[in-house]
């Protein structure tokens, strides 16, 4: 089991083990050191203006 604490990339709220979170569907948001996680679709939505994706979506995961 991973011991690291995952935080929402927008609001900084910690994602508890077993909590649902969201990942951006754009590969640049998930490559290298940049692995963005969002606590809600709203936070995912909030990252769009800064990310300037041409077309993007999200997927639901469990921490």
């Amino acid at each position: 089991m991973s011991e690291r604490v995952v935080k929402c990339s927008m609001c900084g709220k910690a994602l508890r083990p077993g909590q649902t979170y969201y990942k951006c569907s754009v590969s640049t948001c998930n490559s290298g050191r940049l692995r963005l996680s969002f606590c809600s679709p709203g936070c995912w939505d909030a990252h769009l203006p800064t990310a300037r994706h041409r077309s993007a979506g999200y997927t639901e995961h469990v921490n």
């Binding site: 569907s25 754009v26 590969s27 998930n30 997927t59 639901e60 995961h61």
Partner: peptide, 11 residues
């Protein structure tokens, strides 16, 4: 026809 990436496959 939706376009996804590996995060979809992971989910």
């Amino acid at each position: 026809y939706a376009i996804g990436t590996d995060t979809v496959a992971e989910a």
